[in-house]
């Protein structure tokens, strides 16, 4: 896709398990345009998280190419180009919610007044203005995930990758988080790749893909 935010071609990944080599991805092609939302579903162990890690540049593929915004994906571009939301939130326990959001900005440069203002705005946008100074341990699961969403959007990324963001949440909270993700991505024209088990959540995205036998369909 010309001008794609994300373009993956022929991505392959295999793991050694004892004497066996398991091919998890057998040449995945994926292109996501600006502002587009794509869901990826698949059975447990089908390689969804592996694919997302490859798309995020967190893991190296055995073969294939990956481009972010038309340029080869490189680790040093990750902080400014994409945001990631994980199933397990992964907030830093020693710092409060606002500082966790601001942490993404710190990876790019020392935050100034503009970054602080944006972090506060995002915290308010995810409905946690009153909880900004609370430590992660003082927040519920849903609140933590909302902080993680705000953190992922802190650097105004072109692409947001969400790996089972509702996996550790109850249905009601999960619905709210997915609505928040989709809404924010629509508002900011951020491309979204959502990995989920949930058919209903997948249906809310612009394009639904299924990972089966190591390929997307």
């Amino acid at each position: 896709m010309s001008g794609a935010v994300l373009a993956a071609q022929g991505m392959r990944k295999s793991y050694q398990s004892g004497d066996r080599r398991i091919e998890v991805l057998r040449g995945v092609d994926l292109a996501v345009g600006a502002g587009e939302s794509v869901s990826i579903r698949g059975e447990s162990g089908s390689g969804k998280s592996t694919l997302l890690n490859l798309l995020a540049g967190l893991d190296a593929p055995d073969g294939g190419t990956l481009a972010w915004g038309g340029e080869p994906a490189q680790a040093n571009r990750r902080a400014g180009f994409l945001g990631i939301v994980f199933q397990s939130f992964y907030l830093i326990p020693e710092i409060d919610a606002l500082a966790n959001v601001l942490m993404a900005a710190r990876m790019v440069k020392a935050p100034g007044a503009a970054e602080r203002a944006r972090a506060k705005e995002l915290i308010a946008r995810v409905g946690l203005a009153e909880r900004a100074t609370h430590l992660p341990a003082q927040l519920s699961g849903g609140e933590r995930q909302r902080v993680a969403v705000a953190r992922a959007l802190m650097n105004s990324p072109k692409l947001l990758l969400a790996d089972e963001p509702t996996g550790n949440l109850d249905e009601h909270t999960g619905d709210a988080v997915v609505e928040l993700l989709l809404g924010l991505c629509r508002e900011t024209q951020t491309a979204l790749v959502l990995v989920t088990h949930n058919t209903a959540y997948a249906a809310k995205t612009g394009r639904q893909l299924f990972l089966r036998d190591g390929a997307l369909s």
């Binding site: 680790a75 040093n76 990750r78 902080a79 400014g80 990631i84 992964y90 993404a104 990876m107 790019v108």
Partner: peptide, 12 residues
């Protein structure tokens, strides 16, 4: 896992 997160956030 926090160290992993830092890497995911873009830490070298």
């Amino acid at each position: 896992r926090e160290i992993g997160l830092l890497g995911a956030l873009g830490a070298r």
